[in-house]
Computed example of a mutant assay.
Amino acid sequence: MKFLIAIAFLIPLYGWTQIGGQSGYQSLNITSNPRAAALGGTTVSLADGDVSQFFENPATLDSVRSQNLFFHFNPYFADVFVYSGVYTFNIGNVGNFASGINYVNYGSFELTDETGGQFGIFSAQDYTFLVGKAHQLGPFTLGANLKLTHSSIENYGSTAVLMDIGGVFRVNKNWTVGMVFKNIGARVSEYTPFSSPQIPFDIKLGTTFKPEYMPLRFTLTSTNLVDDNLSLEQESTGRSSKSIDKMWKRVNLGAEVLLSKNFQFLIGYSHKRKQELRLKETGGGAGFSYGLMVKVKRIEFRFSRATYHVAGGSSFISLRTDLNDFKKIL
């Protein structure tokens, strides 16, 4: 069984493909929690009670108790700000659900005509509402998110109804494998009759492993499994370097240093981000990320920093708590 899992994970690294195009709704690809940001940008196999992983793979909800609350803030770039939040709740015999929102505010812009004359100010924002549920079947867990996403620019808007379908397989207590089909669905309205933004469908596959006697946990996530055109750059002239580079652009690496249950340090690396955003003379740390988790009593705080280019990067900040813990002291 372990051999088959390894083969299933490696095969997609060499190219599930589809005909490419320019995608819309790119806010769906922005990382919505600091933990994933610190571990290379995305994770689909972490199922350890962290409700923020709901954004990455709905199947991870099986390990989350009801009344978990999560809030995330990300000053992305320039005047762009990203906010997200999740709350889990129980519905009788049906079980636990999660509801969440992801909101991206792009700020304000000048409204001008073709001659440069200013007519006012307009704004742009994207938001996505999510509802998710997971169901466990022995070592397997299946989960799904139903998403309503809307993108607006001035008086123009586009809406889509989407789903994420994911699964998690627990090989043992220290090894999990996850897979998710992201953004399955269709547009229900367009910006204009002449625009048809593509939905950024993706398939992600990953694994998380913790050596039994080491305070470390490693995560490897393969992304962009349906996109063969990962870069518009000229390909390397050497065939060996070209194939290796192409494979690594599909892989994010991350590690967590588990110093205690109340303090962790995280590091990650995205080869795709490094190759696309590095300068010709220097990488400037592009592609690398780091973060930490500190838990004080009933509040878990996370901070992460992802470097995108020489000029800097982006910070991710979150708070998470379990409201059930507060009931114990009331």
Rank of each mutant, 00 (worst) to 15 (best):
M1P: 08
K2E: 14
K2A: 15
L4W: 14
I5C: 07
I7K: 15
L13M: 10
W16V: 13
I19F: 13
I19Y: 06
I19P: 05
G20R: 13
G21V: 06
Q22P: 05
S27W: 00
N33G: 09
A37L: 08
L39N: 03
G41E: 05
T42A: 10
S45W: 04
L46M: 10
L46A: 10
A47R: 07
D48Y: 10
D50Y: 08
F55Q: 07
F55N: 08
S63P: 00
S66A: 13
L69D: 02
L69Q: 08
F70G: 04
F71Y: 07
H72P: 00
N74Q: 13
D79Y: 07
F81T: 15
Y83T: 09
F89T: 09
I91C: 06
I91Y: 09
G92D: 15
G92E: 10
F97N: 00
F97I: 01
F97K: 08
S99V: 14
I101A: 07
I101S: 04
Y103K: 11
Y106V: 08
G107T: 13
G107L: 04
L111D: 15
T112D: 04
E114G: 02
G117V: 07
F119P: 08
I121S: 12
S123D: 14
Y127S: 07
T128D: 06
T128M: 11
F129I: 11
L137K: 11
T141I: 09
L146Q: 09
I153L: 12
I153S: 04
E154N: 15
E154Q: 14
E154A: 14
Y156V: 05
S158G: 05
M163S: 15
D164G: 07
G166Q: 05
V171E: 07
N172D: 14
V180Q: 01
E190F: 05
T192Y: 03
P200Y: 01
I203L: 11
L205E: 04
T207P: 01
T208S: 12
F218G: 07
V226G: 01
D228L: 11
N229A: 09
S231W: 09
S231H: 12
L232Y: 13
S236M: 12
S236L: 10
T237R: 14
S241C: 06
I244G: 02
M247V: 14
K249F: 03
R250H: 08
N252I: 05
G254Y: 04
G254A: 01
G254W: 03
E256I: 12
L259S: 13
Q264S: 14
G268I: 00
S270M: 04
K272N: 10
K272V: 00
K272A: 11
R273E: 06
R273G: 02
R273D: 02
Q275W: 09
Q275A: 11
E276N: 12
L279H: 10
T282F: 03
G283R: 03
G284A: 07
G285N: 05
G285D: 02
A286H: 06
G291Q: 03
G291K: 00
M293D: 00
V294P: 00
R302I: 04
S304C: 03
S304L: 01
Y308P: 03
V310G: 01
S318W: 00
D325P: 05
F326W: 06
L330M: 13
